[in-house]
Computed example of a mutant assay.
Amino acid sequence: MSAPAIDPVQTPSGKPGKSAKLSVSLTGRSGGQRRTTPARFDTALGWSDRPGPAWALRILLCAIALGVFAAPFLTILSGALSTHPSGSSLSFFPHDATLLNMRVAGERGIWDYFSNSLVIAGGGLLLQLVVCTLAAYALARHRFRGQALVLTLFMLTMMLPEEVIAIPLSLVLGHVPVLGLDLKGTVWGVILPLGAWGFSVMLLTEFMKDIPDEIEEAARLDGVGELRMLWQVVLPLCKPALGVAGVLGFIMIWDQYLLPLIAAKDPTDYTVTVALAVLRTDPEVGSGVVLAGAVIALVPSLVVYLLLQRSLVTGIAAGATKG
């Protein structure tokens, strides 16, 4: 085999440069075709296109993980579509498939509770994003006395379980201080307590802190005010964080159980999560109706995740690579 032929890239002076790229071609005895090495198929998990023990082990681990996460959903869907679901055995496929459970759940008012949840989740998420964005902008882009105390208070709200504040919150909703309003039995009794979430404030604050000061200074030289700065400069750079806050905030609001329960005056004020607990205690309905209600309650969270999954993954990846 002949020696490799190295063709140096010439500099303008006619001499090979130190950083010149070398073009190496390996030829056979006949000086014919160039030999190329096939590109290896790599992923973040170290996958390879060649079957082997490691390849089989990774396939097995992925199958186990898929089974662990997918099995509950398949079981719920199977039970919701089965005529007589069994609560003592797992079944991934419905027996005697029927939509009777869905119809009975609708007759029990599941769609009314579902609409209540949609109104509360939509209004609560909108209010939460507005409040948390304004709070994060003040904490990240401005300096004022007591800033550390405000951050500490937001963190404390994440440390207290709902059961601890249930009784004080019930008293406040029944008689709002100063205003003297009774918010029980209204959607505002559920939406307003969810207007600020410490997690979203902390997340947006950390993202806004990483925005270069030069961008803000250049915008201020053009006469940009605070609200315009937030809307046209800061928020477009925080889209990944807003996606994460939107997905997690919606799931948090949608899964609320204790707050809608203490804010309701009548069973018609219940959300779908509370309605599922009521259906479970109803002796006239079986487990299939409860599973049908669970499938209905699962759909909005799944839709929101599928719509915002790109922003969610981008935001998590951006937060993991900071620093």
Score class of each variant (00 low, 15 high):
residue 174 G to E: 12
residue 46 G to V: 11
residue 113 Y to R: 03
residue 256 Q to H: 09
residue 238 C to V: 12
residue 308 L to W: 01
residue 86 S to L: 13
residue 274 V to K: 02
residue 105 A to N: 06
residue 259 L to D: 04
residue 90 L to H: 11
residue 267 P to Q: 07
residue 7 D to M: 00
residue 39 A to H: 12
residue 241 A to G: 08
residue 266 D to I: 02
residue 10 Q to C: 06
residue 75 T to S: 14
residue 286 G to R: 08
residue 312 L to W: 09
residue 16 P to T: 09
residue 323 G to N: 10
residue 198 G to K: 04
residue 122 G to S: 03
residue 40 R to Y: 03
residue 189 G to S: 14
residue 7 D to G: 00
residue 290 V to K: 10
residue 9 V to R: 05
residue 251 I to G: 00
residue 68 V to W: 14
residue 270 Y to T: 12
residue 109 G to V: 10
residue 236 P to C: 06
residue 206 E to I: 12
residue 254 W to R: 00
residue 215 I to M: 12
residue 265 K to P: 04
residue 253 I to M: 00
residue 113 Y to F: 10
residue 3 A to C: 04
residue 228 R to W: 02
residue 101 N to W: 00
residue 307 L to C: 10
residue 128 Q to V: 10
residue 101 N to R: 00
residue 309 Q to D: 12
residue 106 G to L: 13
residue 79 G to K: 13
residue 117 S to I: 00
residue 30 S to A: 11
residue 249 G to A: 04
residue 187 V to P: 03
residue 182 D to V: 09
residue 235 L to S: 11
residue 183 L to D: 02
residue 46 G to M: 14
residue 54 A to S: 09
residue 139 L to H: 00
residue 31 G to N: 04
residue 191 I to G: 03
residue 113 Y to N: 06
residue 186 T to V: 02
residue 134 L to M: 15
residue 86 S to V: 14
residue 159 M to S: 06
residue 47 W to N: 08
residue 147 Q to A: 15
residue 10 Q to A: 08
residue 37 T to C: 11
residue 128 Q to P: 03
residue 113 Y to C: 05
residue 88 S to C: 10
residue 102 M to F: 14
residue 183 L to I: 01
residue 61 L to T: 10
residue 116 N to G: 01
residue 279 L to I: 08
residue 29 R to E: 10
residue 250 F to E: 02
residue 124 G to S: 11
residue 19 S to E: 06
residue 5 A to H: 13
residue 289 V to T: 09
residue 211 I to S: 03
residue 226 E to C: 05
residue 240 P to I: 01
residue 303 V to A: 09
residue 134 L to R: 14
residue 99 L to Q: 02
residue 104 V to F: 00
residue 102 M to L: 13
residue 174 G to W: 08
residue 271 T to D: 05
residue 174 G to I: 12
residue 52 G to W: 02
residue 167 I to N: 07
residue 99 L to C: 04
residue 238 C to G: 04
residue 320 A to R: 05
residue 200 S to H: 05
residue 316 I to Y: 08
residue 66 L to A: 12
residue 256 Q to A: 13
residue 93 F to Q: 07
residue 74 L to P: 03
residue 135 A to L: 15
residue 136 A to D: 11
residue 163 E to M: 06
residue 234 V to T: 15
residue 249 G to W: 01
residue 196 A to G: 09
residue 216 E to V: 12
residue 200 S to G: 09
residue 271 T to Y: 01
residue 142 H to F: 14
residue 115 S to I: 01
residue 15 K to H: 08
residue 140 A to N: 08
residue 208 M to T: 12
residue 72 P to E: 08
residue 239 K to P: 11
residue 194 L to A: 11
residue 112 D to P: 00
residue 95 H to G: 11
residue 25 S to C: 15
residue 143 R to I: 08
residue 171 L to R: 13
residue 47 W to K: 06
residue 123 G to P: 09
residue 65 A to D: 02
residue 234 V to K: 13
residue 5 A to I: 13
residue 42 D to H: 10
residue 272 V to T: 03
residue 92 F to V: 09
residue 275 A to S: 06
residue 96 D to R: 02
residue 59 I to N: 06
